[in-house]
C-alpha cells in the first residue's frame, strides 16, 4: 500500500509504542529489581535503574535457592521444569500425531465415536479432573516422580484435532501414490506425513512447551520432595513467605521466563523455513 498520511502514521506509531511499553514495562521492572539488594527494593519507590547486586542475586538463586521458603536452587528447579515441559511436549506431539493418523487414515469401527471422545476431553482441563487424577497417580505410586509430573498431562485433544484437520487437507492421491510405491501405513506416516507436518509440529511444539513449562497447580499438588519442585511453583513458594526476598524472586522470574523465549526463537526459524518450503 502506498500512502502518505503523516498524521495517521504518527497516531499508529503512538498506539503501537504505548502497547509495547505496556507489555515491556513489567518485564523491565523485573529485570531491574533482580539487580538490587532487598533493602534497596524496600525503600518505598521502586528503582527504575539497574543496581549493583545483579551477579550476587543470580548466583545465590542459581546455587543456593531460598531454603527457608522451601525453594531449592534455581538450577535444579529449572532442570525439573525443563524435563517436565519436554516430556509433556514430546509426549503430546507423538500421541496426537499417531491418534490423528489413526482417525484420518484408518476405517475402523466406532471411528467417529473415538474422535468425539477425544474432542469432548477438550472441555476438561487439568483443574476439573485434578482430584480423580491425583487419586490415580497416587495409587500408581507416581507421586514425586517425573512420570507423575508429565504423563497425566500428555493426552491432548487440541493437538489431535489440529493434526486431524491438517491431515485432511493432504490430497488422498498422496496416500494412493505411496501405496502404489509400496509404502505401508507406518512408512507413509514416517516418510510423507511427518515431513509434511514439520511446520505444524514446530508451532505446536512451542505452544505445548509453554503449556508444560507454565504448569503450576499440578506440580504443586503431586510433589512434596524438593528434588522435584519446578521453577513456577518455586517462585510461588518464595512469594508466600512472610518476608519475601524480592530481589531473589525477581531473579528466579527472569530465569523462568528465558527458556520459553529461547524455544520460541529456535522453533521460529524452523517453522518459517517450513512455511516457505512446503507450499502445495
Amino acid at each position: 500500500m502506498v500512502e502518505n498520511r503523516p498524521w495517521a502514521n504518527l497516531i499508529a506509531h503512538i498506539v503501537l509504542i504505548s502497547g509495547v511499553a505496556l507489555v515491556a514495562f513489567p518485564v523491565y521492572v523485573a529485570i531491574v529489581a533482580s539487580t538490587h539488594s532487598l533493602s534497596g527494593l524496600l525503600q518505598g519507590t521502586l528503582p527504575l535503574l539497574p543496581g549493583g547486586h545483579g551477579i550476587e542475586n543470580y548466583t545465590r538463586m542459581w546455587q543456593a535457592g531460598v531454603s527457608n521458603a522451601g525453594a531449592p536452587p534455581a538450577a535444579l528447579m529449572l532442570w525439573n521444569s525443563f524435563i517436565m515441559a519436554m516430556a509433556i511436549t514430546v509426549g503430546k506431539l507423538s500421541i496426537s500425531l499417531l491418534s490423528a493418523f489413526a482417525i484420518v487414515y484408518f476405517r475402523f469401527r466406532f471411528r467417529m465415536f473415538f474422535f468425539w471422545v477425544i474432542f469432548v476431553t477438550l472441555m476438561l482441563p487439568v483443574e476439573v479432573r485434578i482430584i480423580p487424577t491425583f487419586q490415580v497417580v497416587a495409587d500408581l505410586k507416581m507421586l514425586n516422580s517425573f512420570a507423575g509430573l508429565s504423563i497425566p498431562l500428555i493426552a491432548s485433544a487440541t493437538a489431535t484435532f489440529l493434526f486431524r484437520q491438517f491431515f485432511m487437507t493432504i490430497p488422498e492421491e498422496m496416500l494412493e501414490a505411496a501405496r502404489v510405491d509400496g509404502a505401508g501405513p507406518l512408512k507413509f506416516f514416517k516418510d510423507i506425513l511427518m515431513p509434511l507436518s514439520v511446520t505444524n509440529i514446530a508451532a505446536l511444539f512451542v505452544i505445548m512447551f509453554i503449556y508444560g513449562w507454565n504448569q503450576y497447580l499440578w506440580p504443586l499438588i503431586i510433589t512434596t520432595d524438593p528434588d522435584y519442585y519446578t521453577i513456577v511453583m518455586g517462585i510461588q513458594r518464595m512469594t508466600s513467605e512472610e518476608n519475601p526476598q524480592w530481589q531473589l524472586v525477581m531473579a528466579a522470574v527472569v530465569m523462568a521466563a528465558l527458556p520459553p523465549v529461547l524455544v520460541i526463537l529456535f522453533m521460529q526459524r524452523l517453522f518459517v523455513k517450513g512455511l516457505t518450503e512446503t507450499e502445495k
Binding site: 490430497p171 492421491e173 498422496m174 494412493e176 501414490a177 505411496a178 501405496r179 502404489v180 510405491d181 509400496g182 509404502a183 516418510d191 510423507i192 515431513p195 509434511l196 518450503e277 512446503t278 502445495k280
Partner: peptide
C-alpha cells in the same frame, strides 16, 4: 497395489512435495 506390479500416473500427479525429483523417482 504395491504387490500387483503396476505403476500409476495420477491426474494431479501426487508428487511428494517435500522430496526432490530424484527422491520422488527413487522412493
Amino acid at each position: 497395489p504395491a504387490e500387483r506390479d503396476i505403476a500409476m500416473v495420477f491426474q494431479n500427479y501426487a508428487l511428494y512435495p517435500h522430496m526432490t525429483v530424484y527422491n520422488n523417482l527413487a522412493y
